[in-house]
């Protein structure tokens, strides 16, 4: 079972827009909520009001980028399982618990077979797998497999919890094997990229790089006066008239 399928019929995955993600962590909370209340062992927390450690399938890092030109940027960087085509986490698994589905390419863990050795988490270059401390079994993003095909849910809810909840529209879900799907066209239009291509995992999930930011306040612009500047300049340094009187009176009190 831990042999990878030669090819998958679909490649369901996420496209994450680093330009629009605002780092609100709403997707982290939605993910933890759904995956704690539904399929599989709940995602436990250890000492949540103290040292605060726990299992998460989706985490948001934030990076500071200082480009050669222009201003520094803060980029919020969501990271979850990329459902790789050549998933090293699957082939190392000794028990057959880890597998990649032929029908849609989703990488899953069969919790009834996992022995909690942790080797698959070592094999994943992205840190997308975590052993749950309470359950002792491997947890990872399921692409909300219990939502996307769930006919008990209204149609608009049949997407991963993180995608459904993202207030910025930074997360997109779809079939990346179909060149005409919305996600594939988005990747095409925005130059979507793979993370760590040199690790040769062939991730399905794609990341859209941040767009160029405007340069209105970039260092080379400062010093030049805007044409509107005279109208925007403060009219009086010291308050005069009624405000001035009020100010002086209050000062005396």
């Amino acid at each position: 079972m831990t042999a990878l399928p030669a090819s998958t019929n679909k490649k369901l995955g996420l496209v994450i827009d680093l330009d629009t993600c605002v780092g609100c962590h709403a997707c982290v909370t939605a993910c933890k909520g759904w995956n704690t209340q539904n399929y599989g062992a709940p995602l436990s927390d250890q000492d949540p009001y103290g040292d605060a450690s726990g299992t998460f399938l989706n985490r948001i890092h934030s990076y500071q980028v200082e480009p050669d030109q222009g201003l520094a940027q803060t980029i919020h960087f969501p990271k979850s399982c990329l459902h790789c085509d050549d998933a090293p986490c699957v082939t190392v698994c000794p028990t057959g618990a880890s597998y990649k589905r032929e029908e849609d390419g989703i990488v899953l863990v069969n919790e009834d077979a996992c022995m909690g050795c942790g080797l698959c988490a070592w094999a994943c270059p992205y840190g997308a797998r975590e052993v749950d401390e309470a359950a002792g079994i491997m947890k990872k993003c399921t692409l909300c497999v219990d939502r996307i095909y769930n006919e008990n849910l209204p149609e608009e809810d049949r997407v991963p919890a993180c995608v459904r909840t993202c207030p910025a529209g930074a997360r997109h879900f779809g079939d990346l094997a179909d060149p005409d799907s919305d996600v594939s066209r988005l990747v095409q239009a925005r130059g979507g990229v793979d993370l760590m291509p040199e690790q040769e995992t062939k991730p399905v999930n794609k990341y859209l790089p941040p767009r160029e930011k405007d340069t209105l306040q970039a260092p080379e612009m400062s010093g030049e006066e805007d044409v509107l500047a005279p109208f925007l300049a403060p009219v009086a340094e010291e308050p005069k008239g009624f405000l001035g009187w009020l100010d002086r009176t209050l000062e005396k009190l």
Partner: peptide, 18 residues
Amino acid sequence: RLNSGVTLFEAPHTGDNY
């Protein structure tokens, strides 16, 4: 896949994790 000069600004969480 970010350009030159990338440094960690904030970790995803205050505590440690697995």
